[in-house]
Each structure stands twice: as C-alpha cells, then as structure tokens.
Design a protein around this nucleic acid. Structure first.
Length: 504
RNA sequence: CGGAGCGUAGCGCAGUUGGUAGCGCGCUUGGUUUGGGACCAAGAGGUCGAGAGUUCGAAUCUCUCCGCUCCGACCA
C-alpha cells in the first residue's frame, strides 16, 4: 500500500485530489443529469449538521423559516433591471406543463405555458412579491424570514459541491423600516456566518465588502466571508447583501411609517450553500482523505470492537456499549457526543481506513488486551494514522469533551497558520505579479499564490490590471485593517487594503 | 460555448497491423487467518458511452451525438 490513502496527493494534483477525497469519503457522486450531483448519506449528514447549527443561529437572531415556490414567473425577474442582467444567462426555464406520447413512443412536451416559469436561481423576487402583500405598516417590520431550499444556476463548468447546476442552500430575506436597520441586519448575518465558519467549521475567514464588480446583481453592498483553501485559492463561503430600496421599488414593498408617510422598505438577503461542504474538504483534509472538525462530524467518535472468540466478543461488546452510553450522556458544544460502535463483520484494517477516509475525528479500539488493562487504544484523525494512545476506559467519556475541543481548536489553528504563511502585504502592482507568478508551468501553478493585502481602488482598471493573473479583489477586510495608502494601479488614495487572490 | 484530454466489469487499467474481451483491486462462497488496508481455492459480473457508416468481420477505422476532467468566459 502507498503511504497515503488518496492518490494523487494534494501536491501532485490538487483538483484531482479533491475529487478523490469526495469519492473515498463517499460524500457525493455524479448524477445522470449533467452538472448535478447526488449527495450521498455521509455528505448529506455533514450538510444536515451545518443546517442544524445555522438554523439555531437564525432562530436566535429572530428569524423564522418559510417556504416559497420553486418556480418564478418570468416577469418577476424583470422587476429589477440589474438583477435580470446578472442571472439571465444561467436560468433554467420551464415552458410546458404536459407530456404527450408521440407516434414513435417518445414523449413530447405540449401544453405551452402562457408565461414561462424560471426555476429559481435565488428568490428575491418571489419573496419580495409576497412581502409587498404582507407588509403594510411599520408594525409589520422588520420581516425576518429564512428559507431552506434548492436553487438552479445553469453553470458552464460544474465541480462537485463547489459549483453545480442545482445546489442546496439557505436564503434569508428581510425587510426593514430604515437603511440603518437593514445595514445592521446585513452585518449581523455576516457575523453569524463568520462565527459559524470559524467556530464550527474551524475555517478562518476574512469578512468584508465586495467591490462593485463582484456585487450581487441589484445589491447596494455585498459582503462576503472568504476562506483560503490548501492550494492558496480563495473560496467565497457566504454572502450577505444590503439591497437598499432597489428591490422594494421594483416590487412595490411599501409601509406606512409612524408619521403616516408611505415609504419603501429596506431589504437584505444572505445565504450559504452546500459549497461549504467543499470548503471544509479543502480546508482540512489531507492525503489520507477527509478530515472533519468534531462540531460538524456526523459521528465524532467511532468505537471499534476487536475480538476472536465469542467470549471475547461478549466482553468487548459490553464494554463498547457501556462507553457509547457514557459518551452519549456527555456533551460537547452543547450537544450530546455522537459516538457509534462499528461492529460490522469485516477486516479491522479495512474498517479503520474507511473511518480515516471519512474523516471521523476519533477512533477507539477496544480488544481483549485493552479490557484487561481497563483501557482503549485511541487514534485521532488530526494526527498520524498510527499514533495510538492508551486511554483509561473509566475516564474516557469524561475526558472526551476536552479531547474534541482540542481537535476542533487544533484544526482551526492549523488552518489559520496555513493562511498566515500564505498571506503577504504588497505595495506595488509589480510585486503582485511576482507573488502570483505570472508565468506558471503545468502542475506548478496550483501550488502558488495565497492572499495578498494590497491597496487598490474600487475601479475597473484594477480588475483589468490583474485579470491576466486570474487574480481578483476578494473583499476589503473589515477587521485589523485601517492603514490608508494609494492604489497600486490608479494611484488614488484608499482608506484600507483589499485582499487579492485567485478564487473558486 | 471555445481549446485540450478521456469514456472497456463497482473502481483502476491493458487490449499493437480490425478476427468476437482480459488484468489488478473490490464483490460472493468455502477454508486458513485476525491489535493494523491478509492468504489459498472456487465463482459471479461487460449490449467495450450512444447512434450511424466502412467491412465477411469493429473495443479497434470514419462521422455525428452524449458525458466527464482540465484550461478560458460565467458564478455561491
């Protein structure tokens, strides 16, 4: 066997490594439908973890869930000019509502719709149409609603989890009486995403507003959290938009204010998607497969009984069940610890490697020898596959929360250190060109780059200057960044540095 | 949608100048094993991506289409 479970390794071929990890961890696979993936149980379980945690956070910030239609009348999309422009190119359109059996046995779409329906690429317009009905008075505000749904964006180049034609996400849509309140909401939800990314996904992110070119179609301001993947590329992990009154005007979302005047609402929208699963993979995984932070791992601890005879089996299984019960009674991150006994009848080595490839944070083997010593053999996914530690069974459950916290924190620190190593401050366009290695050779380019903090203006000339490098302005970091300077392209004065990177 | 590559068993691949399908892993069964991706034996599994054409004969040659991957344009 090679010394790692995934081939090729990250260093050899990063994109291919990513796909092999998805396959080895049994997260998802290609479907018969072009550009669409099947999310398999293990991949879906990770998404469910994300949903559970985020949903709790949305509720805690006063939001309620609701559900709006998959189909959006074509005319709705036309209500905000920039919105149409932004999404028109990638929409799936339903034009018929019936199938008839043709003479050759083929099914023929018939029953042409009077008005074509667009499969939602996002739901601003249809939710706005409902808000226009629901909101009449300042007493109806703020309107704070979230929807868990699928959306379709007909992408040219799909990549599992990162960019598929259909994906799952959550979209929050809120309406407010004042601009200040709406901006506050936009930033609050950006913070929710940042907290979730760092605390639960152990993925350090940079928060900040986008440049005009990268803004959501129809938004006044778009904010994002940007994470660095292990190839140095940036991944937009979540977005929060301040929509101003743009959509409210287009869709007539009005309210009577306390003074009795009729005013347009100020709206926001924000979302994260199954892309986060890809983000987690590319942030933590190694050449042995998936590595999951404990907080989002469907199973945090797997117990592996080892036995030969029936007597051994009885004793070992009893010890496993006892430990499983103790672990389930203990808590980590405010939830019961998720432990599982894997008693499947298969070879121990295969079984262990399966759990390694699937990213289970902690494995505990319990065999007759361990039992005699009152111990279990523990291995951690964030350490080498053969670094085993004997742990006393009597105390393991009480120590487990600390252990999981240590792993969670360790992964976060490791990711932060990685990002720090690949983050630089540059003060000239020439340095940017050098850093991102203008002339990259095959197989080498993927290892280059990172985040460059540079003074640049929000100006098309900046995008044009770095376009040949495939580098874009990811966002203008809001924290620890108040050093004024002059734009390295246009020479204009700017109040702070921006993050430049290649991106997914 | 442009450029490149690929499509043969669940996975990874071989199959030369056209002659009717093979290897490794995996899977099933039996046995030997078992604290680190076991070994022996016997088996199951393929309209060679789809369609058309050339030919006595096509996985192999020609054309068209479909899908996947990478690189561009677009994006969460």
């Amino acid at each position: 066997m090679p010394d790692h479970a995934i081939s090729p390794t990250r260093a050899e071929d990063y994109p291919e490594w990513y796909q092999q990890v998805v396959k080895a961890a049994d997260l998802a696979e290609q479907s018969p439908v072009r550009g669409c993936m099947v999310i398999k149980p293990h991949g879906y379980a990770i998404w469910e973890r994300m949903q559970t945690i985020l949903d709790r956070m949305f509720k805690a910030t006063g939001h309620q869930n609701a559900y709006f239609p998959l189909f959006i009348p074509l005319s709705y999309l036309e209500q905000e000019a920039k919105h149409v422009e932004g999404f028109a190119k990638e929409c799936a359109v339903v034009t018929h509502h019936r199938l008839e059996l043709g003479p050759d046995g083929k099914l023929i779409p018939t029953g042409k719709l009077e008005e074509p329906l667009v499969v939602r690429p996002t739901s601003e317009t249809i939710i706005g149409a409902m808000y226009a009905k629901w909101i009449q008075s300042w007493r109806d505000l703020p309107m704070l609603i979230n929807q868990w749904a699928n959306v379709v964006r007909w992408e040219m180049r799909p990549r599992v989890f990162l960019r598929t034609s259909e994906f799952l996400w959550q979209e929050g849509h809120t309406a407010h009486a004042t601009s200040e309140e709406a901006v506050e909401e936009t930033l609050r939800m950006l913070d929710v995403y940042a907290t979730f990314a760092e605390r639960d996904l152990a993925m350090p992110v940079v928060k900040g507003p986008k440049t005009a070119a990268e803004r959501f179609p129809g938004a006044v301001d778009t904010y994002s959290i940007e994470a660095m993947m292990q190839d140095g590329k940036a991944l937009q992990a979540g977005t929060s938009h301040f929509l101003g009154q743009n959509f409210a005007r287009g869709q007539n979302i009005k309210f009577a204010s306390t003074s009795g005047a009729e005013e347009f609402c100020w709206t926001t929208s924000w979302g994260v998607s199954t892309r986060l699963v890809g983000a987690v993979i590319m942030t933590h995984s190694d050449d042995d497969g998936l590595v999951l932070p404990p907080r989002i791992a469907p199973h945090q601890i797997v117990l592996l009984p080892i036995h030969r005879t029936d007597e051994e089996k009885a004793a070992v299984m009893e010890a496993c069940r006892k430990l499983e019960a103790e672990l389930s009674a203990a808590t980590f991150g405010g939830e019961p610890i998720r432990a599982k006994i894997d008693a499947r009848d298969m070879r121990g080595g295969d079984k262990v490697w399966q759990h390694i490839k699937q990213g289970v944070p902690v494995r505990v083997e319990i065999g007759p020898r361990d039992l005699a010593a009152g111990a279990g053999s523990m291995t951690r996914r964030d350490r080498g596959p053969k670094e085993r530690v004997a742990v006393p069974l009597a105390e393991f459950a009480s120590r487990a929360p600390t252990l999981l916290e240590e792993i969670q924190q360790g992964l976060f620190e490791r990711a932060k250190a990685f990002r720090a190593e690949r983050t630089v401050r540059l003060d000239s366009a020439a340095d940017v060109h050098v850093f991102f290695g203008a002339g990259e050779g095959p197989g080498e380019g993927s290892a280059r780059g990172g985040f460059a903090h540079v003074h640049v203006a929000d100006d098309p000339a900046v995008a044009a200057a770095f376009d040949p490098l495939k580098v874009t302005v990811r966002c203008v970091p809001m924290e620890g960044n108040d050093e004024p300077g002059t734009c390295v392209v246009t020479g204009k004065p700017v109040p702070r540095r921006s993050v430049l990177a290649r991106s997914y």
